[in-house]
Simulated scan of single mutants.
Amino acid sequence: MNVTDQRAVEAFPELGHLIALRNLGWRFLPPLVRNGVPVEVDGFWEWPGGWCDVIRVRDSSEALGLRMTGGRRPGVVWEYEGGMVDVVAALVSLPPPGERLAPRLVTAAAPRLWTPAEPLLQ
């Protein structure tokens, strides 16, 4: 953990869970900022075959985790809402796609991920 990470965790201990995801290979988009204040952080893990696990954090008590199928029209096969620590724990405990106990049933159309090359819609 670098000095910036250490200072962030000292100020906000819950951030250690997002840093742990990043250290596992998760990638994070630039935070959504309003009036100079970060209001949302989005991260994702891409699986072989196009599957994707996603986390969206608005604060330590409001987070969302998703697993989405790959392809042109991705679908949601797993969703969990709760505190950030609980969502991170649920995401890391999901079996990899393709394993016998991994979720497969599409329950909803997946949201499109924002990427830095695209303008944000407010």
Rank of each mutant, 00 (worst) to 15 (best):
Leu21Asn: 05
Leu94Lys: 00
Tyr80Ser: 03
Asn23Phe: 08
Gln6Glu: 13
Val54Leu: 08
Val77Lys: 07
Ala89Arg: 09
Leu18Ala: 03
Val92Arg: 07
Met68Glu: 00
Glu10His: 13
Pro96Glu: 12
Arg22Asp: 06
Gly82Glu: 03
Trp114Asn: 05
Glu10Val: 12
Arg56Leu: 08
Pro103Arg: 07
Leu32Arg: 04
Glu62Ala: 11
Ala8Gly: 08
Leu121Ile: 15
Val92Phe: 10
Glu79Ile: 11
Arg58Tyr: 12
Leu91Ser: 02
Arg112Gly: 01
Leu101Met: 12
Val37Trp: 10
Glu40Val: 08
His17Pro: 03
Asn35Asp: 15
Glu79Pro: 05
Leu120Cys: 06
Arg58Leu: 11
Leu121Pro: 04
Leu15Cys: 08
Arg34Thr: 13
Phe12His: 13
Ala63Trp: 04
Arg27Asn: 09
Gly83His: 02
Gly75Pro: 00
Thr107Asn: 09
Glu118Gln: 15
Gly49Ile: 09
Pro111Trp: 04
Gly16Asn: 00
Trp114Phe: 09
Leu94Ala: 08
Asn35Ser: 13
Thr115Val: 14
Arg7Leu: 14
Gly70Asn: 02
Glu118Tyr: 11
Glu10Lys: 11
Met84Cys: 09
Gly50Val: 08
His17Val: 11
Gly83Ala: 13
Leu91Tyr: 01
Gln6Ile: 14
Asp86His: 12
Pro96Lys: 04
Pro103Val: 09
Glu62Trp: 06
